[in-house]
Simulated assay, not measured.
Amino acid sequence: MYKVLVIEDDAVIGDMVSMYLGEEGFHVVRYETGHAGLEAMSEFQPDIILLDLMLPDIDGLALCGQIRELSNIPILVVSMKNKVIERVNALTAGADDYLSKPFSMHEMSARVQALIRRSKHYHSSAVPSSIPAKPVEALSKLPKKPAQEMDESSSLISLDHHTRSIWVKGDLIETTYSEFEIMKCFIKYPGRVFSREDLLQTVRGIDSLVTDRAIDVHIANLRKKIEENPKEPKRIRTVWGVGYKYVQ
């Protein structure tokens, strides 16, 4: 039984979501504040988090970023905010999908299942995505990858498909699911120009909402992580009017 952590202060929406997902066979727990939800993560070990952005005690975007620093658990943002910039900000903070209120319970369930399905597929051969007992220490002591394990196709950047990790000059770089998928395409086909539509098809789950603008956000985030100077990228190049390409 998959576990869903709902962080939602609206009792009506929270109860409806919990009831619907419960009837769909999920184990659901709900908390009305961000701090309570964050504290529950370690013990509950959810397979996905449904996060409202308008919480009484903490900014939802800040909480989203904090969760992403601790874990790769899929995050589905549900919010009354429906402007494009709000979606972009949520994706930038680490969310994997965004659903505007009011929404169909059936669509919400489909998105939850799609994100869990994608997550389980990605981690089928990896160590389970759990919350570290001492997250601050864990994040400050990222391991170095031995030089002999680097991918022969790129001396500076390598991908570990089993753990879904990206290594840049031997340093482990944390990425979201979509960022890893985009980078996987780039590494596999260096020099090939990918249109935004190509990349959309790469990261879009059957039920997930991904836009052209989201692709630009993912590219910007990847550049910050792998480029020496993100403002003058040498690896991920923009092909004006078309899309992007990766240069080894």
Rank of each mutant, 00 (worst) to 15 (best):
N82F: 07
R237S: 00
L156T: 07
V217C: 14
R204G: 00
S158G: 13
L5G: 05
T238K: 12
K245T: 09
F180R: 11
F103I: 13
D15Q: 10
E23M: 05
G205R: 00
D212T: 02
S130P: 00
M41L: 12
Q248H: 05
A93F: 14
P132T: 12
L156E: 10
V28I: 04
Y246F: 15
S42K: 12
D151L: 11
V12Y: 09
L115E: 01
K141A: 14
R196G: 03
L61E: 13
L63K: 01
E227K: 06
A40D: 04
H121R: 13
S165I: 05
R68W: 09
D52M: 04
L53P: 02
R164N: 15
P135M: 10
K188V: 04
L38H: 06
A110G: 03
P46Q: 02
I75N: 00
I219C: 09
S165A: 15
E86V: 01
E32T: 10
I131T: 14
R235M: 09
G14E: 06
D47M: 00
A126D: 10
I219G: 03
K231T: 08
V210C: 03
E197N: 06
G94L: 14
D151Y: 08
D52N: 12
G170E: 11
R237K: 12
F103P: 08
R118Q: 15
G170W: 10
G37M: 01
V193Y: 01
C185L: 08
A90E: 06
V203I: 15
A214G: 04
E32F: 02
P102M: 10
L53G: 06
I226E: 09
S130D: 10
G34V: 09
H161Q: 08
